[in-house]
């Protein structure tokens, strides 16, 4: 009788999962498996396909262009991650306090998150405009002659990092807000009775107790930033002089512009492994921290 119930449960599980599962298999499952297969071929998208073993992977290791895009992606992450974490936390702390118009401010900070990257990129492109942009205008008011931002290889990546951080701070803030609300107020009460300053409370209570949230936010942001693409594509297209080409853009170029689907698939699998590796390292690290 018990097994009968179990069977029934399993049956219903399948029925209810079917619509979602079908979508997953069609649009995610099958493409993932096929991309792995394609990565061992020389498929040019239009012609026939033949296996060439791990040739694509060997080529990738020796391809300076791939390493430039890898380095640029890491540069992006190094600039972007601390920015969103620090400012996301700061906004969360501010908007966690009792204040007027709190809901309004929270919504406002979150607004960029739900705005399309295309719209955001175009607006930031104009803000960065060296001749007519708002940023350089404001700089000129205080007597600084601004850089050429996206037109200068030295500042283009900084420009992309700032715009990306601006867009994502709201998302990080909401996650931190959730974490903050999970910290029991009793800790703070006890700490203030003991005479701990606000800063002390932040350092000794808030930050340690937020650790699980911080971990989650870091992983999510890291995974997202390895896949940075839209803003780069629209704001600089990888330029000037290749100074902002990132991994996903490199993959896109090889797949759809250079007719090298096999090589592009190999690159996306390497990107997957890199993301997987970072996630795994942090999982390990987190386990230790929790113990």
């Amino acid at each position: 009788m018990v097994s009968m119930t179990k069977k029934k449960t399993f049956f219903w599980l399948c029925v209810f999962l079917l619509p979602n599962l079908l979508g997953f298999l069609t649009f995610i499952g099958v493409p993932i498996v096929s991309s792995l297969v394609i990565s061992f071929t020389d498929w040019d998208l239009l012609g026939s396909m033949s296996f060439n073993g791990i040739e694509n992977y060997i080529r990738l290791v020796q391809d300076p262009e791939f390493w430039v895009s890898f380095r640029n992606t890491i540069l992006f992450i190094v600039g972007y991650l601390p920015l969103v974490l620090i400012f996301g936390l700061a906004c969360a702390l501010l908007l966690n306090q009792k204040m007027k118009f709190r809901a309004f401010f929270r919504a406002t900070f979150f607004l960029p998150v739900i705005t399309s990257w295309v719209a955001v990129s175009l607006v930031w492109k104009w803000l960065y405009n060296p001749e007519y942009g708002l940023i350089n205008y404001l700089l000129s008011v205080i007597g600084i002659s601004g850089p050429e931002w996206l037109n200068d290889p030295n500042t283009a990546m900084i420009g992309i990092i700032l715009a990306s951080a601006w867009k994502d701070i709201g998302f990080v803030m909401v996650l931190f807000l959730g974490g903050l609300q999970n910290i029991s107020p009793t800790y703070y009460e006890a700490a203030s009775i003991d005479g701990a300053s606000k800063l002390r409370q932040l350092w000794n209570i808030t930050i340690p107790l937020l650790a699980p949230t911080t971990f989650f936010v870091t992983i999510i942001s890291l995974i997202n930033s390895f896949q940075v693409f839209d803003q780069v594509m629209i704001m600089t297209g990888g330029g000037p002089g290749g100074s902002t080409i990132v991994m996903v853009q490199n993959i896109y170029n090889h797949a759809f512009r250079y007719f090298e689907m096999g090589y592009a698939s190999a690159m996306s699998w390497v990107l997957f492994l890199v993301i997987f590796l970072f996630t795994w390292i942090q999982m390990k690290f987190q386990d230790k921290g929790a113990n």
Partner: peptide
């Protein structure tokens, strides 16, 4: 297209 891309990239370096 690959040859064009790499050329345009290098030209930008010359312009800069």
């Amino acid at each position: 297209s690959k040859i064009s891309d790499i050329t345009n990239q290098e030209f930008e370096k010359a312009l800069n």
